[in-house]
Design a protein around this nucleic acid. Structure first.
Length: 413
RNA sequence: GCCCCCAUCGUCUAGUGGCCCAGGACAAUCGGUUCUCAGCCGAUGAACAGGGGUUCGACUCCCCUUGGGGGUACCA
């Protein structure tokens, strides 16, 4: 383009970009992760945009300037950036900047070996929808109608794995098929937080994807990792994100954490789960719940299994199948046991887990019953389900009055 | 299509020529413990992608094949 042409275009105010005139030659840099030099042949060196038509700098221009301004010495980033690094190197040379150390990390994939992302959540919703449709013999139109969505939209989504629902649509479908948000695969850090993972377990687990301190070492604190980290411990192969192993890390971390740390973590969990009735709990109560349910994997489990303690007695929901199996079956055998056990509990002098246990075990012995035969009816009466923290701890927490009120209510079902 | 990278149990990995008929962790299977769910304890099975070299000796070095991933933007 001639100078004259340039002046004319500028005078006309033509929209334009700014490119770096990249010197045509071979570029190379050392990659500390690959442990070798990466080369861009001269034939592939091309001018590239550094300022967009709208006047904004491109990412390439911005990172190079920003990293330099921030005195960044090491750039460790995903391998999708490997080619970009040549552009950044050229820019640094043009600007007279020193070159930082570069390393390109492998990618973390989902457990199926695909790209980990929000699509994974959509996929789970689709899978579950198809299962539910099959088992309840419902059509795509039925689901769409129940969710208040256009039939063709849902049908299209079900048929084409490339299509995704937007968030409100997803929520509507999940409501219809009874899928909880907590059942979706976590992707964002927020998802993990909301499901009750400790940040330290997530960090520890993540650090081990693509890096190893060597030997058999796995459990590490942040300080340990800072001390142990070396560039040559970084691997070159992609890693798959295995949530089961993460959950195991979390179980261990929670088991080892001191009570104050756990209470703080639980508070943080509750701060992103405002619908939980445990909001009303004091720190002392939270500490008790955590201790009762020790061995838990996620804080969400402690929440879920403790909610009955924070529900008004007359609002407690009873699981029909639990009631049937533990109270009504065999002509109300469970209910009969419950009635007698209730009298034993009512007669306790000083209410505590220990005294409740003594009373119930005494009754078992007297009747020649296994503890389970008595504990389960009590559990169902007091918790509404067959799953709860240890029953005597639960009774202590609930107190005599509420315990007896719930038993009476269950007996009247 | 073209360019680049990678390759040990199902998964994360240890292993840098003999210490390895390959170690740990999660998961799995089986058994034990317990008032439920968890958890915990014990045991078991499970891999060097395939083929060529190099070497006295290859999981470790080289080549090919296969498989996987990434890139090919006025997105970051």
């Amino acid at each position: 383009m001639s100078d004259e042409q340039l002046r004319t275009y500028a005078a006309e105010g033509r929209p334009h970009v700014v490119r770096l005139a990249m010197p045509v030659r071979e570029y190379r840099f050392d990659d500390v992760v690959l442990g070798k030099e990466v080369v861009l042949p001269a034939a592939e060196a091309q001018d590239f945009v550094i300022r967009k038509t709208d006047g904004m700098p491109t990412y390439h221009f911005a990172v190079v300037v920003d990293d330099h301004e921030m005195n960044v010495t090491h750039v460790l980033r995903g391998q999708e950036h490997t080619k970009n690094t040549f552009l950044h190197v050229a820019l640094q040379e043009a600007l007279g900047y020193p070159r930082p150390v570069y390393g390109h990390l492998s990618v973390i994939e989902n457990i199926e070996g695909g790209k980990m992302g929000k699509r994974d959540r959509d996929k789970k919703v689709r899978q579950r929808t198809q299962e539910v449709m099959k088992s309840t013999k419902r059509s795509a139109d039925d689901v769409a109608a129940a969710a208040g969505l256009p039939g063709p939209r849902v049908a299209e989504w079900l048929a084409d794995a490339k299509k995704q629902l937007d968030l409100p649509e997803q929520a509507a479908v999940m409501r219809v098929i009874g899928l909880q948000a907590s059942e979706l695969p976590e992707v964002l850090v927020h998802d993990f937080r909301k499901n009750g993972y400790l940040p330290e377990s997530l960090l520890n687990f993540l650090a081990l994807l693509g890096w190893s301190p060597g030997g058999d070492r796995e459990q590490m604190s942040m300080d340990d990792m800072v001390e142990l980290f070396t560039l040559d411990g970084v691997g070159k192969a992609n890693a798959k994100f295995d949530r089961t192993k993460l959950a195991s890390f979390n179980t261990d971390a929670c088991a080892k954490a001191d009570p104050a740390r756990l209470v703080a973590a639980f508070r943080d969990y509750l701060s992103v789960n405002p619908d939980s009735p445990l909001w009303a709990a004091t720190d002392e109560e939270l500490a008790k719940l955590l201790a009762m349910k020790k061995g838990f994997r996620l804080l969400r489990e402690v929440d879920a299994v403790s909610r009955f303690l924070f529900t008004p007695d007359d609002a407690l929901a009873y699981d029909p199948s639990a009631v049937e199996k533990n109270l009504k079956k065999d002509g109300g055998a469970g209910a009969a046991v419950l009635r007698e056990a209730r009298d034993g509990l009512a007669a306790i002098g000083s209410w505590s887990a220990a005294s409740c246990e003594e009373a119930v075990k005494g009754y078992c012995e007297q009747k020649g019953l296994a503890l389970g035969k008595v504990a389960q009816p009590i559990r169902v009466a007091v918790c509404g389900s067959t799953v709860s923290p240890p029953i005597f701890d639960s009774l202590e927490f609930l107190g005599r009055e509420r315990t007896l009120r719930r038993i009476d209510r269950a007996l009247s079902l």
